[in-house]
Amino acid sequence: MREEIRKIQELMEQEAYITDPAIATSVYLAMALKKPLLIEGHAGVGKTEIAKVLARALDTNLIRLQCYEGLDATTALYEWNYSKQLLRIKLEEASAHSAEEKEAVIFSEPFLLKRPLLQAITQDGQAPVLLIDEVDRSDEEFESFLLEVLSDFQVTIPEIGTIKATHHPYVVLTSNRSRELSDALRRRCLYLWIDYPSLAKELKIVQTKVPGINEQLAGEIARFMQTVRKMKLNKVPGVAETLDWATALVALHASYLGDEVVRETLGCFVKDKGDLRKFQAELDAGHLAGMITPLP
């Protein structure tokens, strides 16, 4: 294993993110090739967390752009600080400056409110991590704008002109595949698919993220989740759900998975009514023990 990749893995694990070689290699290559990293995977498998952990590991800022339907270019880039502009106009009312001069002043950089994308490329000091979260929720138009920014690393503000990046931020995009992203954006990025964790990985995550959990309980939870993900569910639980459940079980002082405590806490990882009925039926039939898969 390449020393740098081992180092990334180590740094991320120090930040409590269990990192397999696939993740470490992709993160390293994204940094070395200076390309954005597009991370896809089911809900709650740890996509967003990678950007957060990476920022901490590199000891740099995390700038997050949360995408949503209707997000437009300006909102992601900048806004004018209207109240500051108004105040300035008031203050200047009596001044001898011409209207053009006044306008030039209030539409200059000090009156600009930098939004994530602009922040990310103009920040002083170390390159930040730019997280463009759930990019599939934005529309195609925004996506092509994003592609432009990620290709040129410069943006144009009509009143000010072109602002060039002072550095290339480390860019992480996440998507839940609610919409197919364009080929152009995909080609621009390195790709990382995060699958549901293996038994060993999930166990390690639980042990790292839920302090004080006993070994038996952690093992049973991890094994149980492997079975759960093989069931035909409407909403397959991710790592986030596993962690919620484990935390709840620890709070209830459970030391193993018993019928009663499982029934009580089902809601932690079952988020769909139909799925809930399915689980209850399984428990009623006395299948709990069988769902805790034996260790391989």
Partner: peptide
């Protein structure tokens, strides 16, 4: 070209690493 660069960046003695590296460079959807 990125693939060739990747081969210079990963440990060529580690096939796993070559696999993960090329995979992230050459694939773009699941």
């Amino acid at each position: 070209i990125d693939a060739v660069k990747t081969l210079n960046l990963v440990d060529l003695g580690d096939r796993q690493e070559v696999y993960w590296g090329l995979r992230s460079v050459l694939t773009s959807r699941v």
